[in-house]
């Protein structure tokens, strides 16, 4: 597989992992840098990675790189300790597991409804509400102007609410 092909196929996956870890610690630019680093590392070692293990490799590399970068960015001892705890994965209580599982399921249902909006509305909502991108940033990526993104976002939210109501999903 060509490098660009690999990049296109796994970019969203790597970026999603990286941005989630860096959310509290870095900026969108940090996430982009880190994502680039992950792909550069994979491209350097491409000959040694089995194609069927590529996604797993990318996922692990993304997590490790992002945690390293988050530690670099958060020099304060308290933040570093907190990150270390997150990375080490404290054992959650039964209640935590149940709540997390419920929230993950709700998020899954929500994503299905967002996906049903079609593009580019789905991408706009995800970039705004998951990646916290500004209208200008979204517009630049989607080749639209910021006002159009705002308008589409507003309309998509309205449709999403209607869909959620119709699907009996209340929050």
């Amino acid at each position: 597989m060509e490098q660009r092909e690999i990049f296109d196929r796994y970019y969203n996956y790597v970026y999603a992992i990286v941005s989630r870890i860096l959310r509290e610690h870095g900026t969108a630019e940090d996430a982009e840098e880190c994502t680039a680093d992950v792909f550069l590392e994979v491209f350097r070692r491409l000959d040694t990675i089995r194609p069927e293990g590529l996604q797993a490799y990318l996922g692990t590399a993304a997590r490790n790189r992002a945690i390293d970068l988050a530690r670099t960015l958060t020099r304060h001892a308290r933040n570093t300790a907190s990150l270390g705890e997150e990375a080490a994965g404290d054992l959650p209580s039964g209640e935590d597991v149940e709540r997390d599982s419920e929230q993950a399921e709700t998020a899954r249902l929500l994503l299905a409804q967002i996906r049903a909006l079609g593009e580019p509305d789905a991408a706009i909502l995800i970039q705004k509400f998951y990646y916290d991108s500004t209208a200008e940033e979204i517009a630049s990526g989607l080749g639209m102007n910021a006002a159009a993104v705002r308008k589409r976002c507003s309309r998509a939210l309205k449709r999403l609410r209607e869909q959620l109501t119709a699907a009996g999903i209340g929050f």
């Binding site: 941005s19 989630r20 994502t35 970039q127 998951y130």
Partner: peptide, 17 residues
């Protein structure tokens, strides 16, 4: 709510940048 989504599912949508 979206912050609880699985990155693998989020990967189904275009990421910025």
């Amino acid at each position: 709510l979206l912050q609880h989504a699985d990155p693998e599912e989020i990967a189904g949508f275009d990421a910025p940048g």
